[in-house]
């Protein structure tokens, strides 16, 4: 009885998930009236704007990952090592982006850093790009911090640090050569997740008026019929790729841990 119900819940749920995926794939292949074809994909991939915006968003994602690592790893490390009392505060702050909608945060950016303000970031393209990267770093903060903090929990931070110190290492060496390699798997997991979030992000990029992939997809959706479905398939594959890489990293990490 339980098992019948369980199979029912599982299969119905999977049906709900697979239908849209099937729908978008089928639709993306129907550009030619008479036969299935990859015309929609060719059209999308050949679009210079696609290439430009995708490159822009990919670069943004890499910058975001770098920023995230630089901010999160030392903080999580230091909080674990020296300021455990601060942990609830830091954890609370890193969870805030899940509660405060992104549109509110970017609204704040636009008003706080406009051309007439004390820090006129939106006045130049470079400044706006920086602001966007910071915004993405904020969006990625909950995932990045969680991943790194979990990674740190599995190693003995205090002992590793003391061992490194007794061998004469400075803080830079400790972080870069001792802690980071040990939480690399966690950092990579966070990085791939960040990539998946940033690559198709719409709200912040659109409101800061940057030539990113998300707004491009939305514009294409208004103008074309079949290309949006092809884009959706591509986006799904990218997301799947990022998650697959996370799985891969997690598995290899487990292997090394068992071996050592």
């Amino acid at each position: 009885m339980t098992r019948v119900l369980a199979w029912g819940a599982f299969l119905l749920g999977m049906l709900y998930f697979l239908l849209p995926l099937w729908g978008m794939t089928e639709f993306s292949l129907r550009m030619r009236r008479d036969a299935y074809s990859f015309d929609a994909y060719a059209s999308v991939l050949g679009n210079p704007e696609f290439q430009r915006t995708f490159a822009f968003s990919a670069t943004m994602a890499l910058v975001t990952i770098l920023m995230g690592v630089l901010i999160v790893v030392p903080t999580a490390f230091w909080v674990r090592l020296r300021m455990p009392g601060l942990r609830p505060v830091v954890e609370f702050i890193t969870l805030l982006p899940l509660v405060i909608p992104a549109i509110v945060i970017v609204f704040g950016y636009i008003r706080l850093y406009n051309t007439g303000s004390w820090l006129p970031l939106t006045g130049t393209a470079a400044g706006t790009n920086l602001l966007l990267a910071m915004g993405y770093t904020v969006l990625a903060l909950p995932y990045m911090y969680r991943a790194v903090d979990t990674g740190l929990r599995t190693i003995d931070v205090a002992t590793l640090t003391e061992a490194a110190q007794s061998l004469g290492a400075g803080w830079g060496t400790i972080l870069g050569r001792v802690i980071l390699p040990n939480v690399l798997g966690a950092v990579l997991s966070g990085a791939f997740l960040t990539f998946a979030i940033v690559i198709g992000e719409f709200t912040m990029a659109a409101l800061l008026d940057r030539p990113a992939f998300g707004p491009f997809m939305q514009r294409l959706g208004q103008d074309r019929a079949y290309e949006p479905s092809a884009l959706a398939v591509i986006a799904f594959v990218i997301t799947w790729g990022c998650m697959g890489l996370i799985g891969l990293v997690t598995r290899t990490q487990k292997h090394t841990r068992v071996r050592t």
Partner: peptide, 15 residues
């Protein structure tokens, strides 16, 4: 994580 713009496309193509 498959949210945002492409998700909307998938549902438009389906229902």
């Amino acid at each position: 994580n498959f949210a945002g713009v492409p998700l909307a496309f998938a549902f438009i193509a389906t229902i």
